[in-house]
Design a binder for these strands. Structure first.
Lengths: 361, 361
DNA sequence: GTGAAAGCGCTAACAC
DNA sequence: GTGTTAGCGCTTTCAC
């Protein structure tokens, strides 16, 4: 272990001295080269790279008020729904010359607020994905900063919403068509707009198809929580479940298998978000959405708001659809009856909003 | 769409005026409250919150040289290996009061360097995970900034390495024990330390067990690339594959299934990283590691280097082990012979470094 | 086309 | 304990 004094980075005036010009010229050589003689620019740049000069963006921000940074805050980086979104947003931001701060609120509104406060003066804007903060605080924030929301429907703010309604409708219709007369919605985080949207979509679709609807809450959008509620589900006298997300579905799948319930023969399961692709077994039928698209759009919205110095309140809806794989089948004769029903007609082909996927295995 | 002038954030001197004190006092009320009368602190804080004052960290950084930020750069956020690592690192950083920049290099060394340059003046240190940059540039960077590496073994720098050797040894031994006499290693990104480590570990283990070793390159650590190399693998007269990561394995599994090769009866597959858990079908046997642990350790190493203003070169090895699930079985009589072999003894229990997992489904 | 100098918001001597 | 003031590195009027 060594204690080393790192050599201090060269500043604009080091370069100025070396190039025999003023600091203003160096500054312009980087931010407004068109104001300078081409020759000068080259000279300055030459010495700059020779010295290893890199502009100090924080200092620049201090005088311009433009930080060149944005922040993205998510409730759980490790939830596979977010990484593609994050990646797309970061790529779009980078393309526009912005760097991005990442915050993980761990599903906790207070942590989220703390993160936001720590970042607010270092960024020009925020992307809040599935924010768990109360509306009031979001609106307060939006008074000082550009804010774009993902999966949160706060009027007055630009937002991109993954519109699960279409997909959920297709899912319930799919179940109805397979002869199911009852289902349970397994809900996710109460503070989640997506959950509220999904819950109500399931509810109206169930009414439409005259199906009995039960409901049970998974304490966390995770595999374990999904497995935990298995017994509750089994005790419920329903033949199908739609879950808040794919993880809960995956956990439920595991729980059902442990209890000897064969999916999809005895029970049908539909997930949401389609993040597990076809990798579960049986391959999960799920409501699919382009979550990377959501990230890209949010970033683009933010960028354009920043660059044009405006504030819009675009409400951007992203389509969803049902991807039918192997966890849905005709309803058993009685719920969870372990009937010897083997038929698996997959008759949904052609139904609007439904896509038949070949499993990858 | 409205064009709104956002009200400028109050500064330290606004607060000073309101509280009837000097700017220095306000500053101290936040950074060194112990220097002030308790009463004064309360007064100042009161007016600060009333005005909605939040310290401008960039400005603070300018005068202290301490940004309170770090950066994490990864080659691909969307690769599930990284999100848990990211999350753990971000959490640890946040706990220590640091905010974190996120960079995705998209596996491109030049993009990585560009990202680093853009961030270098705004952060106190970097975590480079699976960096694709040449050693020279990493060392240059480490001259100006604290750098902690993950999965990159550059002497002189602090680094945390996921030591796949143990896991790979166990994997090859497991195959040998099952009667396999040949295998192929499906390699990943050439610039990846992990790939080099895995390749050479497979190689020496193959020698040890007197197994024939082939090798084929997947152009990208992805499902698609894994599926693409399927024919090459089939043409190879081997009975098992170890892949660079779980995605390639998953793609290979899909490709094999499409070609009518039954896993594990006809062919055994072992992945690396164990990010798919038991969700593939058949459930993937894989070399497992705690990647979140790697993130946490890297962050802690960085934090402690920053706080103690030192530079160590700790080389931190993280254990791996083999998780046996359902894609490995006794070798078929001849390679890819479609023999009717059904036995699946899973006899590896008790072998060191091997863990038998129950599939979740 | 280029330079001098003020100032962005904050901290850290140094006074008192 | 608290105030004054000189910078931190950069941009940007305003001169020249």
């Amino acid at each position: 272990m060594r204690t080393i004094k790192m050599n201090p980075s060269p500043t604009i005036s080091d370069v100025a001295k070396a190039a025999g010009v003023s600091t203003a010229t160096v500054s312009r050589a980087f931010s407004r080269p068109e104001m300078l003689r081409e020759e000068t620019v080259i000279q300055v740049r030459f010495h700059a790279t020779r010295l290893g000069y890199l502009p100090n963006l924080a200092a620049r921000a201090l005088s311009t008020g433009r930080q060149g940074n944005i922040a993205i805050v998510v409730p759980d980086i490790a939830n596979p729904f977010f990484p593609p979104l994050l990646k797309a947003a970061q790529t779009a931001a980078d393309l526009a010359g912005y760097s991005v701060f990442l915050g993980d609120s761990d599903e906790d509104p207070e942590r989220e607020q703390r993160l936001v406060n720590k970042l607010v003066m270092q960024v020009e804007g925020f992307i809040l994905a599935s924010s768990r903060m109360p509306n009031k605080q979001i609106l307060e924030l939006s008074e000082r900063q550009s804010v774009v929301l993902i999966n949160r429907d706060t009027p007055g703010l630009p937002r991109v919403l993954i519109d699960t309604v279409a997909g959920i409708n297709a899912a319930v219709a799919h179940l109805a068509e397979l002869g199911h007369r009852s289902l349970v919605y397994i809900s996710g985080p109460a503070a989640s707009w997506s959950d509220q949207q999904r819950r109500s979509a399931v509810s109206s679709a169930a009414v439409l198809h005259k199906m009995k609807l039960e409901s049970v809450h998974a304490r966390h959008p995770s595999f374990d929580a999904g497995r935990e509620i298995t017994s509750a589900v089994i005790g419920m006298d329903v033949t199908a479940a739609i879950t808040f997300d794919d993880f809960v579905a995956h956990g439920l799948l595991a729980g059902l298998a442990e209890q000897g319930v064969v999916v999809p023969r005895d029970f049908s399961v539909i997930g949401c978000d389609d993040v597990l692709g076809a990798s579960t077994y049986p391959a999960l039928t799920s409501v699919s959405a382009r979550c990377d698209e959501a990230g890209r759009m949010a970033a683009d919205l933010l960028m354009s708001n920043l660059q044009m110095d405006k504030r819009d309140d675009t409400r951007c809806l992203l389509e969803t659809w049902l991807v039918v794989r192997d966890t849905t089948a005709p309803a058993p004769d009685s719920s969870l009856s372990r009937a010897k029903k083997k038929a698996h007609p997959k008759s949904a082909i052609g139904t609007p909003g439904v896509m038949r996927m070949r499993s990858t295995v």
